[in-house]
Design a protein around this nucleic acid. Structure first.
Lengths: 149, 149
DNA sequence: CTGACTCATGGACTCCATCGACCTCCGGCT
DNA sequence: AGCCGGAGGTCGATGGAGTCCATGAGTCAG
């Protein structure tokens, strides 16, 4: 993991569809060398995958919200987690320090759907209560933090 | 925007480095047809870009936290936003309904760095106070929600 | 029926991905 | 010192992919 690897990671976070040839030109190596380095980064799990970044509004998922979950005192955390995992609207899920065990980032089409989702979460066994905050607008998301390569 | 477009988007959210030929096989079109469709989705802004999904821990950014910002009553929201935008640690930024005007997702290497970041945010003009919650673990992040294509 | 439009196909040409062969540097061993 | 072996690079070849373009099928309005 040297500075060339870091630059490759930065370049792929900027544009994951760059060709190996293009990456090679930018870092000053040959295409096969870049190919091998990227392959090793993938194998090591440093690069987990490549995702298209979409406009959720255009896909009918214009409502973003943060939902904090407070569990019952005797709740089985894994059961709550599994229930939440089964809900496709939950885009991200963090296990938190603090009263709210989980923090979810959810994406739905309408406020009505958000309401239904909240009801469903509140109904799942182990969940004592939830706290929801709605995002009025997304200033930016998943902005890559440049490495020092 | 038909069901084939939705499937292409799903496929690219799964693996943004799929070749056009592979996408073509999966959706049952020719490669040039897929090329044109994807190009149109990009031009329309439905696909905003392609990002490598990295293991932040491996890059020395193992600490994730959510920070809510409460603004001064007379604060200029744009100034606060610009100040936050200039901090590379802030990966995502949402403008929220509720007392906390902004919700940030930040990524740093150590708790000490998080402390410094919080201090810096609290010092910026227009910020009255902040509330920070630390993620102990990330269950999942940016999970693509499948379209109905 | 006809013309215009949309959208997919197939061919052609260029460029890329990827494999194998070889080269170079470096650390450890005889 | 000289040799060996591995890591990691370049180069060249080739099969396949990307992409441009001309063409053809299907659809709707007039």
């Amino acid at each position: 993991m040297d500075s060339i690897d870091l630059r490759l990671i930065d370049l792929l976070r900027e544009n994951a569809r760059s060709s190996y040839a293009e990456l090679a030109r930018k870092v000053g190596l040959s295409a096969p060398a870049v190919h091998e380095r990227v392959g090793k980064l993938e194998a090591a799990g440093t690069i987990r995958g490549y995702r298209a970044d979409v406009d959720h509004e255009a896909l009918g998922l214009g409502v973003t919200a943060l939902i904090g979950i407070i569990e019952d005192s005797g709740a089985d955390t894994d059961d709550v987690l599994a229930a939440v995992r089964a809900m496709p609207e939950v885009e991200s899920c963090y296990f938190m320090a603090g009263v709210e065990s989980y923090q979810l980032i959810v994406r739905v089409g309408t406020i009505a759907e958000l309401e239904q989702l909240i009801v469903r979460i509140n109904r799942t066994p182990g969940v004592a209560s939830t706290r929801t905050a709605i995002a009025l607008s997304t200033k930016w998301e998943n902005r890559p933090q440049p490495g020092l390569g």
